[in-house]
Design a protein around this nucleic acid. Structure first.
Lengths: 210, 210
DNA sequence: TGTCGGCCTATACCTTGGTATAGGGTTCCC
DNA sequence: GGGAACCCTATACCAAGGTATAGGCCGACA
């Protein structure tokens, strides 16, 4: 709602200086913050900002191919959305890139508008991914402050067991369960059981098996 | 768990009889139930089984292109996963297909194993999609038996409000809320509040705003 | 050694949830 | 008119949840 067009970053990696120039000025004219590099190494040496961003990548790079670089980023859990460009690519390349999650795969020469559309979609995707990740992170942080017993009780509570049943399962008294449960609610900053259940699902604490 | 390789269906659409033959025998040898067609129309005239299945589609078809057919299926809410084949396709085609959700996009000639891998992945995808859809459908069916008031109460309950607060919001007495709530639990076959919350989320009944 | 945090328990008390029973009302349809 | 479904309310009672107060046990750590 109240999210303006906070400065978004576009990273360009292409060994052709003319293309870097052209893309940089194109993106800058649209209000993006642009950084361009001629190799993947250079890009990796640069610190990624904590802002919505995307990577515009030529598939043919010095030393390492764009596809390899893509999977390298994935292995390092770097989730920046990627838009590929190619002058001489083939279909298997594009399919592999798209399967690996690329946002788009443009063949040179492309229309400026196509590139801008791809970047806009990538940025918007990254923005919402970042929001999701941020809230999940804060959730995990809160969860990590629970003692082992509290985590255990939380799992049982959110799977729908009564305090009495949990007490039986853990061979504890019901009052102890109530205490742990209360602590879990406070630490997780849950305002209701419904809240806690939702949090547990986001954390992957669902033991819904027969 | 107890899901054996229930008969899965592979549909082949290609105007080249030789290819239809070759693929049919390939898939049949792997235990799939195969139906082949030379046009999209023929395929559409065939009833789709309520079983995991996928569609192996040549991108160049008589009358209608494979890509058009793909979006036509999407418009009709037919979600069968698609594997494209092409002899003379280009990159933009493959990218468009993949963006629209195709499982794979193979260039002829392809290795049998590549096609089998794609089909296996498509079938497994469709199987889990069908399971999800089935449970969502049964959920919606149960939800539709709730009276308007019961639905309203369910939404409030699963958003974490106390009976008392719901009563205030709806200008009703607390006991009435309890009644509706109890009915909702019974009709939804929820065994606990946690259950109901989960169901509400699956149904998209989340009013989590500040 | 002391102390701090996690853990377990108990009593007491209050709030909330859940259901049965028993009414009252409406609308729609046979 | 009578039934059926929905809707609302009330009393009464019991089960479950939640918290405060208080105490004991243990291991880690300064």
């Amino acid at each position: 709602m109240t999210a303006p067009m906070d400065s978004a970053h576009v990273f360009v990696v292409d060994d052709d200086g003319a293309i870097r120039e052209a893309l940089s000025s194109l993106f800058r004219s649209m209000g993006f913050d642009v950084r361009s590099f001629s190799t993947a190494m250079e890009f990796m040496a640069h610190d990624l900002p904590d802002l919505p961003s995307c990577l515009v990548l030529d598939i043919r790079l010095p030393l390492i191919s764009g596809l390899e670089f893509q999977s390298q980023l994935a292995r390092q859990n770097i989730h920046i959305p990627i838009i590929f460009m190619t002058g001489h690519g083939d279909i298997p390349m594009s399919v592999r890139a798209m399967k690996a999650g690329a946002v788009d795969f443009l063949t040179k020469p492309f229309r400026d508008q196509d590139m801008l559309d791809a970047v806009a979609s990538a940025i918007s995707f990254d923005r919402s991914r970042r929001l999701d990740e941020k809230s999940l992170l804060s959730l995990r942080e809160r969860y990590s402050t629970l003692s082992p017993r509290e985590q255990e009780v939380m799992a049982h509570v959110t799977s729908g067991l009564l305090n009495k049943q949990i007490a039986g399962k853990m061979s504890l008294s019901e009052i102890t369960i109530k205490i742990h449960r209360g602590h879990a609610m406070k630490k997780m900053q849950a305002r209701s059981l419904a809240d806690l259940v939702t949090m547990a699902r986001s954390l992957g604490l669902s033991h819904n098996g027969p």
